[in-house]
Design a protein around this nucleic acid. Structure first.
Lengths: 254, 254
DNA sequence: CGCGCTTTTGAGACGTGTCAAACTGGGTGG
DNA sequence: CCACCCAGTTTGACACGTCTCAAAAGCGCG
């Protein structure tokens, strides 16, 4: 009953969700996160067309990968992803971690092929938004058009600050910034602003922050010894947020 | 005769160019670089509306800076820019170098304010494209809409590879990649693929590549001693491009 | 319950940063 | 027109942070 005619895409870990299970944007509780505001009900109903299907992605499996033809953007409904690029010699760079309400796949627009990999770090559920449809509706609804532009601009600005992290900051500053960013985003989604469970390994954190997994671990331990955080494997509790902010930004936080 | 009623904006180094000097996109020789292809003449004439004005930016002066209200994108007609972000404590990270035909200002869309600084590294000339007009015409011309999306996506992809550089590569690899990227872009604009004159200082290169100016200088010297390049201050000649490619990517290039 | 992946911790190596000094070249003013 | 000045560059010696290699411990999954 729950899986009547599930169509298999790409691999066994990614399945299309049948119509009966589809949830419209108009009453999705993530709406304010991934959809523009200022629509009346009629508009919203038309906008629901953007989301053609939903797709489940099992932990550890790929939503898309480098070289895949680009067709859609993906809005994360539930779950957690990492995106990464890889050099020809196999070195991998994590370019971001994405959670519910965030959009992935923008990298594919320019060349019609994805240039990065998106891996689910936990069982996830995404809304598939065919980009052709996004563009069609963007022409009809200026507020959607503006929304799409803002999402792309936000990604550019985010990457600018990652460049600042990677180019100018030391290990402690990077990890402090990383933790603060993560809890801030989780808090915006209704989670605690002091506790979190990391969905990624030390190695993935290190790849994102441009440091080795051992250095990530050591820096966690250092913060822990200083009483700034409590760490137990993937679980992290931020005891003194101000201390973290001070490490991240020595200037402002007194 | 050449400056009848020049209006001063922002500061004395940035001037609006009078109508008489305006050059339409339709016969701009950079068209294939910053405008979409596949337009008929009528469309092109309408598209010329995008470029409201042009603006001169003197070497060393700002086109826009962090916090400025966002209103327009800028297409570089002539000249050379750097963009950078700065932390509260004053540390600066160069986020890119832009040359003729490239678009800057995308960072401002998301918050209606610019989040980075754009400085001319030589006397430059940009086309001012009010973003509201870009959006209006994008709704009318799908090919322009697609073009705008591709420009933003391209920037995201570029920043992904900078993250790879900063996160995973050593000084020599970074500088090799930087030089190869620069000559490749210059060559696409009709310049030599082996000679170039750097428009930026060692410090600015270092900021972009996440290394100190002394390390940049030493790495230049090392390449020079190895006979890979010839360096004389800002002038660089690439003697053995393959050696550079091999440094950048140990794997592929035999 | 045990295997394997992840994490932690240690010791030493190495690359890049830091500080300092000398050199170069272009621009400016006498 | 030359000398000076200064920003930018080069080079050296040393310090320091992070990486590398290694081993042990912790935890989750089958």
């Amino acid at each position: 009953m729950l899986k009547p005619d599930v169509i298999h895409l790409h691999n066994m870990n990614t399945t299309v969700i049948p119509d009966a299970l589809k949830v419209a944007c108009s009453n999705c509780n993530l709406r304010e996160l991934c959809m523009p505001v200022g629509f009346n009900q009629d508009d919203m109903n038309k906008l629901d067309e953007v989301v053609a299907t939903r797709r489940r992605v099992k932990q550890g499996s790929l939503l898309f990968s480098n070289g895949d033809p680009f067709s859609s953007l993906y809005a994360i409904r539930t779950g957690f992803f990492k995106t990464s690029v890889s050099a020809e010699d196999g070195r991998e760079q994590v370019t971001g971690f994405q959670m519910a309400g965030e959009i992935i796949g923008l990298d594919g627009i320019v060349s019609e092929h994805h240039s990065c990999n998106a891996v689910a770090l936990e069982d996830s559920d995404v809304c598939v938004m065919p980009f052709a449809k996004v563009e069609d509706l963007s022409r009809e609804f200026p507020v959607l058009q503006r929304h799409v532009h803002k999402i792309m601009s936000r990604e550019i600005v985010r990457e600018n600050s990652v460049m600042m992290l990677l180019g100018n900051m030391r290990a402690e500053e990077r990890l402090a910034a990383f933790l603060l960013n993560l809890v801030q985003r989780l808090h915006a989604r209704g989670f605690s602003q002091s506790e979190l469970v990391l969905r990624m390994t030390r190695e993935e954190i290190g790849s994102y922050l441009g440091m080795k997994l051992e250095t990530v671990s050591r820096t966690f331990s250092k913060f822990s010894e200083e009483g700034i955080i409590e760490v137990k494997q993937r679980y992290v509790r931020i005891i003194t947020p101000d201390a973290l902010k001070k490490i991240f930004n020595p200037q402002t936080c007194s």
